[in-house]
Amino acid sequence: MSAQVRWVDGLKFVATSGSGHAVVMDGDGAANAPSPMEMVLMAAGSCSSVDVVSILQKAKQKVRTVEVKLDGQRAEGTPAVFTDIHMTFVIYGHDVSENHVERAVKLSADKYCSVSIMLGKSVNISHSYEIINEA
């Protein structure tokens, strides 16, 4: 896996993944794009969401969409690392089983999500979920 980050101007940078996808980041208070720390938070949510969706699909759950709301707390001072991250998964669908959702979130947290598991070595990561059963 590889990536490249190129300075644009001010504190704005363009990161390009080895697979050729680009994303803009802004180190100036996230005025023009997500900050690098916001990207870390979003990466954790994206990685976990991939797992949860995949596991629920394999369990043949009738899921319409999945959202994850992330709340990250950072240390005072420098470096302002994450100290706590809470992920709330909101699952929308029809007759979605709570047991399957609980299992999917736990498997992501404990076994599959590389980003969260890596961050969990130094950050307190917690999870919750809500199921919105649609008619």
Rank of each mutant, 00 (worst) to 15 (best):
T78W: 10
I85L: 07
L56K: 00
D71H: 14
G72H: 02
T78P: 07
V53F: 13
K58I: 00
V66H: 03
Q73V: 15
L70V: 08
T83F: 05
K60P: 06
A75L: 07
K69T: 12
L70P: 07
V68F: 03
I85E: 05
R74T: 11
A80Y: 06
L56C: 00
E67L: 11
K58G: 03
K62V: 05
L70T: 05
Q73L: 14
L70R: 04
Q73R: 15
V66T: 07
T65W: 13
L56F: 00
S54A: 12
T78Y: 13
D71M: 12
I55Q: 04
Q61I: 01
P79W: 06
V50E: 03
G77Y: 03
E76C: 08
K60E: 08
E76G: 09
V52F: 02
G72Y: 01
V63A: 01
K58S: 01
T83P: 10
V63I: 01
V52M: 02
V66L: 11
G77W: 01
S54R: 09
A59F: 08
V81A: 15
V53K: 14
A75V: 02
V63K: 01
Q61R: 08
I85C: 04
A80H: 11
D84K: 15
D51Y: 04
V53S: 14
R64T: 15
K62F: 04
K58R: 05
L70D: 05
A59V: 04
V52R: 00
R74N: 10
K60L: 06
H86P: 09
L56W: 00
